[in-house]
Write a protein that binds this DNA or RNA. Structure first.
Lengths: 247, 247
DNA sequence: CGCGTTCGTTAAACTGTGTTAATCCACGTC
DNA sequence: GACGTGGATTAACACAGTTTAACGAACGCG
């Protein structure tokens, strides 16, 4: 195995051990990687859905513009994430993808799933599991947006991001680089930029967080977890039921 | 084929034509059906996750109690729906399931998925697609809760329910039986029962809806769709890429 | 160096929604 | 027929979060 393994292999290999066959299958699926500058819209809502992307570098987000002119960010994409999964079920993509900073993506065609489903039950189970886990996480976010205060929503967002970064980066401390401006944070948690500023300042004054530049330090993560009833869904996946591949 | 087909067969058969093999496979998975009275909690948050359920009759919802004492309903389950899918990825269920009225469910074990993934790529693709489509719908709901007014949220909910009922009931008119009280509606759309009442009254006065008992009549669905940017995700699934089963 | 741009902060006025609580109605029961 | 119960409605008041606007800091650029 060379070091420059495919994005997909290294992403999925985090969850289960992959057979050599599976590695082969995955790496042939991948097209050559692509870079985009900060702020570019990579695809637009209602474009035909052909490719998926693995994030190799940088943060992105998916958003929608609403009839009243406001914007809702529905998903943040971090390095290692697969982008566009839910849209596979639709003929057209349902949101616009935007690079929050300079990014590198590894695209692979939607039809790749066809091959995987046909040939590898074990990979299929993993992919299904990831899709389902993402759904759980959306449900968590729904709870947050549906009935939590501004402060709790922001806390929730920070805790979630930290948990996600810790998947691939075990020994990580509670410090977080946040390459999003406050308007983007607002669009994600359903507030205004003004109130995000006020809330972050208050959290800082109260000693919940510390800020320097665009990095945030969570000073009492346990207290925040309790206040928001946060659960880490990333570290707790059930992969026991996965089938072995046929011989 | 007898008329009393299994719940699963009739549910999944709505989307694609099933081979005789697939029908066999599905019907053996199913346990005997079970009934529950209105208001019963069928399973509780944090219970171990062993079974999935197909709804044969009646409405249900999944909810969570939040630290501040409020309650958030995260999903409404209508006849034909599969309940508990996202939880398959977790060791424990992430919400409590409650019967909104008298219901009949068809349980089948979580391990059934194992068999399907191993033996039927085509069914696997369908199941994956349904999971992904549900995720899209959650994203839609997220947009609604994140940045829409009370009125738009309720409109959104009504439109969504109508679209879902129309899947299995093609020629349906814009009339809807709503077996939920206003507190439950509130818990779903992130409002209070009082404000739901006020908003529904206002919508009725303005001629958007008409109410008699617990049925709601949507008087200008197109206007409501426009105001909320509603999209029907149910009628627009992409199943073209599904693999055929191996020979 | 001066200029424009973007972003974060702060303040004041405003508003949609929450809170609380009283009233009413429909319905079932003894 | 009296009573209890659950749900819907209404009104008065409180408040979390929005809107608008102004200002300052940091940065890139000609």
């Amino acid at each position: 195995m060379t070091d420059r393994a495919s994005c997909l292999v290294s992403k999925l290999g985090h969850y289960i051990s992959l057979s050599e066959d599976d590695r082969q299958r995955l790496s042939t699926l991948e097209k050559s990687e692509r870079s985009y500058g900060a702020g570019t819209d990579i695809y637009q809502m209602d474009d035909p859905c052909t490719d998926l992307f693995v994030v190799k570098q940088g943060w992105l987000f998916s958003y929608n513009d609403l009839p009243d002119g406001s914007r809702q960010i529905v998903k943040l994409h971090l390095p290692g994430d697969i982008i566009g999964f839910p849209d596979v079920s639709q003929k057209h993509v349902t949101s616009t993808l935007c690079a929050a900073e300079d990014v590198v993506l590894c695209p692979f065609p939607k039809t790749a799933l066809d091959v995987i489903l046909r040939d590898s039950p074990r990979l299929s189970a993993l992919i299904l599991s990831i899709a389902l886990r993402d759904q759980i996480i959306l449900l968590d976010l729904l709870r947050a947006l549906g009935s939590m205060t501004a402060r709790a929503r922001i806390s929730y967002m920070l805790l979630d991001l930290l948990a996600r970064l810790k998947i691939t980066n075990k020994g990580m401390s509670d410090v977080l680089r946040l390459p999003l401006n406050q308007s983007q944070i607002a669009a994600y948690v359903g507030l205004t930029n003004v109130y995000v500023s006020k809330t972050l300042s208050r959290m800082e004054k109260d000693g919940d967080i510390a800020r320097t530049g665009n990095t945030v330090h969570l000073l009492r993560p346990e207290a925040m977890e309790e206040a928001t009833d946060f659960r880490d869904r990333y570290s707790d996946m059930d992969i026991g039921w996965f089938p072995a591949n046929k011989v």
